[in-house]
Simulated assay, not measured.
Amino acid sequence: MALVTAAVVVLDCAEPEKLAAFYMELLDARQTDVGSNRVEIKGADGMRMAFRRDANVTPPSWPRPENAFQVHLDFHVDDLDEAELRVIGLGGRPLETKGEPGPYEERGYADPAGHSFTLRSARSTAPKQG
Rank of each mutant, 00 (worst) to 15 (best):
L3N: 11
V4I: 14
T5Y: 06
A6P: 13
A7W: 15
A7H: 14
A7C: 14
V9G: 14
D12L: 08
D12Y: 01
E15L: 04
E15P: 05
K18R: 13
A20E: 08
A21L: 01
A21P: 04
E25T: 02
L26Y: 00
L26C: 08
L27N: 04
L27T: 01
D28S: 09
R30F: 08
R30G: 11
D33M: 15
D33G: 07
V34I: 14
G35A: 15
V39S: 00
E40F: 13
I41W: 02
G43A: 12
G43K: 00
G46V: 03
M47H: 12
R48I: 06
R48L: 09
M49A: 05
F51K: 02
D54W: 08
D54K: 06
N56A: 14
T58W: 13
T58N: 12
T58K: 12
T58V: 15
P59A: 03
P60G: 10
P60S: 05
W62M: 02
W62L: 03
W62S: 07
P63F: 04
E66I: 03
N67G: 02
N67S: 03
N67V: 06
A68D: 11
A68V: 10
F69C: 01
H72R: 05
L73P: 10
L73M: 09
F75G: 00
H76F: 15
D78P: 04
D78L: 11
L80H: 01
L80N: 05
D81H: 03
R86D: 04
I88L: 13
G89M: 02
G92L: 06
E96S: 14
T97S: 12
T97Q: 14
K98I: 11
G102H: 07
G102L: 10
Y104L: 15
E105I: 11
R107Q: 00
P112L: 07
S116I: 07
F117P: 04
T118W: 15
T118N: 09
L119N: 03
L119A: 01
R120M: 15
R120E: 14
R123L: 09
R123K: 13
R123A: 10
S124Y: 01
S124H: 08
T125H: 10
P127Y: 00
K128N: 09
Q129C: 14
G130S: 11
